[in-house]
Structures are given as C-alpha cells and as structure tokens.
Design a binder for these strands. Structure first.
Lengths: 138, 138
DNA sequence: ATATCAATGCAATGGAAGTGCAATTACTGA
DNA sequence: TCAGTAATTGCACTTCCATTGCATTGATAT
C-alpha cells in the first residue's frame, strides 16, 4: 500500500498540497466528476489550478476523461482495472438519467466490438445510460 | 418513396424552404455534421435558424445527436436501421482520428451490453475511434 | 382579408475550455 | 543556508459552442 505522495512521485508528478487535496477528493468520489464539481469543492482555489491539475493527472495516467454525453467532460481516477495507457482500452461508463451521476464500471467485461472492413479500431468509448443501482434499488 | 415534403408533414413539421434545404444537406452527407458545418454551407442563413431547425428535426426523430468525444455535438439523419425513438436503441458511431469525420454504422450488429445487478440499461452510446475505411484504404 | 401562430433573424447571454503572464512556491546545488 | 532555477498557482482574458429573448417576417385558417 503506497501513499498518495509515493504514487504521485512514481508518476513524476510533483507533490503539492493542492494536488494531494484534489487526489483525495477524486479518490473519495466513487463517481466521475466535472470540473465544476471540483471547483465547488475547492472554492478557495482558482479554476485554472484545478483545471491544470486534472490535466496533469490525465497526462500522467492517474485520471481519465469521460465523455458521457452530457456535453461536459468528466474525470475519474484510474483504478486497477483501468488501462488508460493502452490504446485499445475499453472505457465502460454508466450514466444515470435519474441522479445524473456517472460511474466507471472498470471490472465489467465488454465483448469485442467488430467494425466493418477497412475500419481500424483504436479506441472505444462506451456509455450506458439508464438507472443506476442506487436509484433503482429503492 | 415519399418526398421530403411528405416526410416532414408526416412528422408534423411545417415545410419551409429552409428546412428542405437543411434536410437535403444532411441527406447528401454520409457523415455526421456539426452546426458549424451547416453554418458554412448556409452562410446566408442565421445560426439560430439552423440551430433550431436541427433541434426541431431532433425532437421529431428525423435527426439524432452524436457525441463522438470531440466535444462538439454532431448531427445525422436517422436511417432505416436507426431507431432513435426506441429507448433501447444502440447508437454505433465511428470517429476517424485522421480525417476527423464521424460516420454512423447503423447496419452493424452489436452484442448486447450487460450491466451489473441493480443497473437498468435504457440507452447505449458507443463510439469507436480509429482510422476509417477511406483513410486506411490508401 | 385578417387574425393567429409558427418560423426566422438579430442581439445578447452563459458556460466550459483554454492561454498568457506575473507572482508564488518548491526543488537544486553550491 | 542561500541563491538560482524551474514548476506551480492565481488572475485576467479570450474563444468557442450552445442557448434564449424579442422583434419581424412568413404561412395558415376562418
């Protein structure tokens, strides 16, 4: 079990107070968050800082971007099952039409997508929309 | 074979010159287009008109929206294989990283996506990125 | 013909993404 | 320790797309 500091250093990211806080925030959230979500959580910090921090995390493969069709980019920490570095990684995300939250279903297996002849598949973005377990459960 | 006028009327859309032109433009394109694409094609018309026309088409299930991850909403005419009205419709789109064009692969069969217990799938958005047939062929 | 409602055009707004630059903070090596 | 360097942060600003309000034009029905 490595600390957040060690993790950041292992990815060649300088450890700052801001980055630790943002990392913890993302780690606590089980869902993908927008930049505004982060802004609301850190009102004292500047948008730009938050923006660039997330971008840095993204570049270093600590965070991946999610495009769930709401038009607003969301971000989530990469988990064990998440192989963002790999071009052919299949991102599976679930967007709840009720609570509007997006979760990563990294552990969920996805069948191989076949494309017509002549097309070369490099990356797949798959967003399932519906009702999440929390909203359907009650 | 019904005319465009008949099609629009059958969907309760008033027939106007503008709408006919925009419909024809979308029909000629084999790819999904952005609002700017349409704007460039109709420089005499106002953005708002084009925007609202497409939105009207969308509401009446003549056009569907595509979110291919470029951050810009694209639109395409619904084809035979496209059942946008149906909640469980599966949108499969291919985005070419080379020419930046997005095509609808409506005829392509997709395996059923399974979601974990408690999740209810209503809609699936699937975007495959890579190299399209035109770009890979040469 | 005219009253009515929809469609269009113009202007403006809002939100998210991104950039330049100055100020600040963290690291490095003497 | 302290200066020097490089990276990070904050502020201001810009750009782009999406969207709305309102006045005007155009179409439809009685």
């Amino acid at each position: 079990m490595q600390t957040i500091e060690e993790l950041l250093e292992s990815k060649n990211i300088r450890v700052t107070a801001m980055r630790l806080l943002i990392y913890k925030f993302l780690a606590e959230k089980q869902i993908a968050v927008t930049l505004s979500n982060i802004e609301n959580a850190f009102e004292k910090a500047d948008r730009t800082t938050l923006y660039r921090t997330v971008k840095t995390f993204e570049e270093k493969d600590i965070v991946h971007q999610i495009d769930d069709g709401t038009g607003i980019t969301k971000y989530a920490l990469c988990e064990k099952g998440c192989n963002c570095e790999i071009e052919t990684d299949l991102h599976l995300h679930f967007h709840c039409n009720n609570c509007n939250e997006t979760v990563c279903l990294t552990e969920h297996k996805i069948p191989q997508i076949k494309v017509p002849d002549g097309f070369v598949s490099e990356n797949v973005n798959l967003v399932v929309k519906g009702i999440c377990d929390k909203c359907s459960g009650q």
